[in-house]
Design a protein around this nucleic acid. Structure first.
Lengths: 170, 170
DNA sequence: CAGTATCCCAAGCGATACTG
DNA sequence: CAGTATCGCTTGGGATACTG
């Protein structure tokens, strides 16, 4: 990028759209407010991977127990996790956590993180884990496609437009 | 997973894979450690949307200036942003920030957040913003596809396998 | 096992003032 | 305009002890 005498303008400046709208109304900001803390995505990852009990989560994550309590409560409250009781024969009742349908819809976010990390932060040995389609076993990747059927590739060029729920800034 | 009394199990338990591996080696954890704080993704969003100057970012985001300084420095350092100087005619030199190639590859993460928020946190009016393919104008969405060509849909069923860079837990 | 209750601490944020 | 410097404070996280 050499000597740009022209900071603004050009087709590259796709920003006029979002820039004019409230930063907090944005769906990215809203979602981040819900699950954008230090532990939540990792909790969801682990639960999605079948770690469903409190102590297992605590020890696998290395999270403080009280913090885990808070996260699980918040996630259950937001209905991203479902807490269900189960009973093993005569024993005392136990609980387990599972992803709710809305929680399972967060998987693309997790996979997007995973894909980027695999490409940019993995050592020379390669990625630490591989996501496969449970039905057919083939590897899964995140793709950006447009309604016209184009694949947008790795470094997509977007143009963000105001949507119906946009709120103009003052 | 040895000492599991296995309450539920069944085909739903796809977790054996990741659960057995280190929580921090995971690419999700690594990526989160880099960009998983309260502001970074929003900074990247705004820069990607064409807000490129310090004061514009500060006022659009509502972030404290010193915090913005730190974020921009960290992101430039991690080579997710590129800082370039430009000169308007005779005036003093100015700087602007742009997404680096690696930074642009984070767009799928942003769009995954956006998509989820649009579906679960938007008001009845609809999504606040719409991402369109810059080339053709059609709307863009995040899709999960497997190498066998299947579209995994909204609530994918995955099986996470250890990859070459996996590190067993003790 | 699955949490809750306390207490303490540090990172991180915000506000403000200052500089080239 | 584009930051840096300082400071106080709040938010959350960690450790530990306790309970049904």
């Amino acid at each position: 990028m050499s000597s740009v005498t022209r900071p603004a303008a050009g087709p590259a400046d796709t920003g006029a759209g979002l820039a004019a709208y409230d930063s907090e109304t944005c769906s990215i900001a809203r979602t981040l407010a819900l699950i954008g803390d230090r532990w939540t995505l990792l909790v969801l990852r682990d639960v999605g991977n079948g770690i469903r009990r409190f102590d297992d989560l605590a020890s696998h994550l290395g999270i403080a127990r009280n913090v885990l309590t808070r996260r699980l409560a918040a996630l259950t409250d937001a209905e991203l996790l479902q807490r269900s009781a189960y009973q093993v024969s005569g024993a005392r009742e136990r609980h387990e956590y599972r992803l709710s349908p809305a929680g399972r819809e967060l998987v693309p976010i997790l996979l997007a993180f995973m894909g980027w990390g695999d490409r940019h932060l993995a050592g020379p040995e390669g990625p630490p884990a591989l996501p496969a389609h449970a039905d057919c076993g083939a590897l899964v990747r995140v793709a950006l496609t447009c309604e016209a059927g184009h694949d947008l590739g790795d470094r997509p060029r977007l143009h963000i437009r105001p949507g119906p729920g946009s709120r103009r800034r003052d």
